[in-house]
């Protein structure tokens, strides 16, 4: 479904991605591990073109989305993204956040958008917060709204960029639970996370990145039980113990 070929990204002199090759199949939950600065977020952000690759190609259903003439807004409609810092729109209600793109991008009728938005908010357990504003919510609730907002566009892939890193420990579970349900429903997901429990339980594939390269890749079970690359071992030892 997503095929990444020799992807490079430079920020000035900083070479962040140094030739990434990756295949993601439909329905897979790809967990991206690695120390900070290894290029995990940049890789994720390249997939919805928030970062424009310096060279290389990303194919989405065999269409090269890094091609010049591609409509980036159309690509982004098919790829949902959830951020570490929530990035909810503070001047809109929870429902307003979720329905905005339905109304303004898909030009959906108001009652139709409200129906979809409400259903999604019920799905993430926030029925009673529909008319609240983001600053009235806890971090966990905010992140669930952000997930609902991304789901509203009915994306084919969901990107999660360290979505629980900014949360108080007791609020992490409610967000991970929503993500687990999503994975069960068959959503294709790419997840940058430090939640090893989640990675083990939900991840179907794991890649381990270091210094802009994928140093190890495989089935989640294999990598956790039997990491081959020394840097993967060191990293897993550090985070699991």
């Amino acid at each position: 479904m997503i095929k990444i070929v020799d992807l490079h990204k430079k920020f000035g002199d900083l070479h962040v991605l140094k030739g990434i090759n990756l295949n993601v199949n439909k329905g897979e939950v790809m967990v991206i591990l690695g120390p900070s600065g290894s290029g995990k977020s940049t890789l994720l952000r390249s997939i919805n073109l928030l970062e424009v690759p310096t060279s290389g190609h990303i194919y989405f259903d065999d269409v090269d989305i890094t091609a010049k003439k591609i409509d980036r807004n159309r690509v982004r409609q098919r790829v949902g993204m959830v951020f570490q810092a929530f990035n909810l729109f503070p001047h809109m209600t929870v429902l307003g956040n979720v329905t905005l793109a339905l109304l303004k991008v898909l030009k959906m009728k108001k009652d139709e958008a409200v129906k979809i938005g409400t259903d999604l908010l019920i799905r993430v357990g926030l029925r009673d917060k529909i008319n609240s504003y983001p600053n009235q919510l806890s971090g966990g609730q905010k992140q669930r709204v952000a997930i609902a907002r991304a789901l509203a566009m009915n994306p084919e892939v969901m990107l999660f960029d360290e979505v629980t890193s900014a949360l108080d420990p007791e609020l992490v579970k409610e967000v991970l639970d929503v993500m687990k349900d999503l994975a069960k429903s068959g959503m294709t997901m790419l997840v940058v996370t430090h939640e090893m429990g989640f990675a083990k339980e939900v991840g179907s594939h794991v890649i381990f990145m270091d210094e802009g390269l994928i140093v190890e890749e495989g089935l989640a079970a294999d990598i956790f039980e039997n990491p081959r690359h020394p840097r993967t071992k060191v990293f897993l030892d550090a985070v699991l113990h």
Partner: peptide, 15 residues
């Protein structure tokens, strides 16, 4: 305004 606001909006496909 926090840059994350622009990114969140663009990631929804908003121009």
């Amino acid at each position: 305004i926090d840059k994350g606001q622009i990114e969140a909006s663009r990631s929804l496909g908003m121009s």
